[in-house]
Computed example of a mutant assay.
Amino acid sequence: MDLNFLSPVQDLVLAHNELLSNQVLGRKLKIHSKQHGIPDLTNVKMAIVGVLENRNDVNYIGEEFQLSEIRKSLYSLFPGNWHYTVADLGDILKGETVADTYFALQETIITLLDNNVIPIILGGSQDLTYANYRAYDNHLPMVNIVNVDSNFDLGDSSKPIKNNSFLGKIILEQPYNLFNYSTLGYQTYFNAQEEIDLMDKLYFEAYRLGEVSNNITLVEPVMRDANIVSMDLKSIRSAEVSTKQKHSPNGFDGKEICAISRYAGISNKVSSFGIYEYKASKDDEATSMLIAQIIWYFIEGVNCRVQDDDFTLEDKYQKFTVLVDEQQLIFYKSNQTGRWWIEIPFLSNLNNKLKRHTLLPCMHDDYVDACKGIVPERWYKAYKKNSV
Score class of each variant (00 low, 15 high):
Leu3Phe: 12
Leu3His: 03
Phe5Tyr: 12
Val9Asp: 00
Leu12Arg: 07
Asn17Lys: 11
Arg27Asp: 03
Arg27Ser: 09
His32Phe: 13
Pro39Tyr: 05
Thr42Arg: 10
Val44Gln: 02
Lys45Gly: 01
Met46Asn: 03
Gly50Lys: 01
Phe65Glu: 01
Ser73Val: 13
Leu74Arg: 04
Leu74Asn: 01
Asn81Gln: 11
Ala87Thr: 01
Lys94Leu: 13
Lys94Gln: 09
Ala99Arg: 03
Ala99Pro: 00
Asp100Glu: 03
Thr101Pro: 02
Thr101Cys: 05
Thr101Ile: 12
Phe103Pro: 00
Ala104Leu: 05
Gln106Met: 15
Thr111Ser: 02
Leu113Trp: 08
Asn116Val: 02
Gly123Tyr: 07
Gly124Ser: 06
Leu128Asp: 02
Asn132Leu: 13
Tyr133Cys: 02
Asn144Pro: 05
Ser150Gly: 03
Asp153His: 06
Leu154Glu: 01
Phe166Arg: 02
Leu178Ser: 00
Phe179Cys: 02
Phe179His: 07
Asn180His: 14
Ser182His: 04
Leu184Lys: 10
Leu184Ser: 07
Gly185Tyr: 11
Gln187Arg: 14
Tyr189Lys: 15
Ile196Trp: 09
Leu198His: 07
Met199Cys: 10
Tyr203Gln: 04
Tyr203Cys: 05
Leu209Asn: 00
Gly210Trp: 10
Asn215Val: 09
Pro221Ser: 11
Ser235Cys: 13
Ser235Ala: 14
Thr243Val: 14
Lys255Met: 14
Ile257Thr: 04
Cys258Ala: 11
Lys269His: 05
Ser271Tyr: 05
Ser272Phe: 01
Gly274Met: 12
Gly274Ile: 11
Glu277Asp: 09
Tyr278Met: 07
Lys279Pro: 03
Asp284Ala: 10
Met289Lys: 15
Gln293Gly: 06
Trp296Leu: 13
Trp296His: 12
Ile299Pro: 00
Asn303Gln: 06
Val306Pro: 01
Asp315Tyr: 12
Glu326Pro: 06
Gln327Leu: 15
Arg339Phe: 09
Ile344Asn: 08
Leu347Gln: 09
Thr358Lys: 06
Thr358Val: 12
Thr358Leu: 13
Thr358Tyr: 12
Leu360Asp: 02
Asp366Tyr: 10
Lys372Asn: 07
Lys372Glu: 06
Lys372Asp: 04
Gly373Ile: 10
Gly373Ala: 08
Ile374Asn: 06
Val375Ile: 15
Glu377Cys: 07
Tyr380Arg: 08
Lys385Val: 08
Lys385Phe: 13
